[in-house]
């Protein structure tokens, strides 16, 4: 499955493939310790950030389960790259995918992450036809948990001390949403009452 609909435009954002020229923009947040913690691969210096960027540049389509599509999220107004969102296809027969996102803390609290993840859900359910999309986050990551709840995801799991993460007991939340729940929640727009004759 290719993502031929890219780039995706939302009200304030553009979701597009990563390019080699995004290095400075991703270093601006990958190098932060509070972001570092949630990254797939270490990005402690420019060399590691470049390797991470190369990896993300290559994640352009979902051909088979296990593949990841990673999108750079940029602001429409100034084309500034503010974060990333990805879909990982985890199970073909059951149509499952995981959504992940990382944003530059400088641009937090403005609803950008929600807007980008909402676009990723549309892509996942409408374009790729997934049945269920899930997301995980640490129990202390309140901002992410709030975002997922706000999008109508259901808290399906709260694991306590199920694994060691960087030497500490981990506590993990799983959120999920089914295609029919997403469509019911977002696609069927009610006619505002003041417009009803």
């Amino acid at each position: 499955m290719s993502a031929s609909d890219l780039p995706i435009e939302t009200e304030r954002l553009i979701l597009r493939h990563f390019e080699k020229s995004d290095l400075d923009s991703i270093m601006a947040y990958h190098l932060l310790p509070e972001v570092q913690r949630y990254l797939d691969r270490k990005a402690r210096d420019k060399t590691e950030c470049k390797a991470a960027l190369d990896g993300m540049c290559a994640q352009r389509r979902l051909h088979r389960p296990g593949d990841t599509l990673t999108l750079a999220v940029a602001r429409k107004s100034d084309e500034l790259l503010i974060g990333q969102a990805s879909l990982r296809w985890t199970d073909a027969t059951a149509g499952q995918a995981e959504v992940r996102f990382v944003f530059n803390p400088t641009f937090c609290r403005q609803g950008y992450a929600t807007e980008a993840v909402r676009a990723a859900f549309d892509l996942g359910f409408d374009h790729f036809g997934f049945h269920r999309i899930f997301a995980r986050c640490g129990a202390k990551n309140h901002a992410s948990a709030r975002l997922m709840k706000g999008l109508g995801m259901r808290l399906e799991a709260h694991y306590r001390e199920h694994a060691l993460f960087q030497g500490e007991w981990d506590e993990e939340l799983h959120f999920a949403i089914l295609d029919r729940e997403w469509r019911r929640g977002t696609k069927v727009k009610e006619i505002p009452t003041h417009l009803v004759a």
Binding site: T93, A94, E156, H158, Y159, R160, H174, A176, L178
Partner: peptide
């Protein structure tokens, strides 16, 4: 009860609902 997964996998051709306790 730590988890209640909905339709996360197909088991014997049917959507599965799974509980995890710990």
């Amino acid at each position: 009860r730590e988890a209640h997964f909905h339709e996360h996998v197909l088991v014997k051709g049917v959507w599965d609902e799974e509980l995890i306790y710990a």
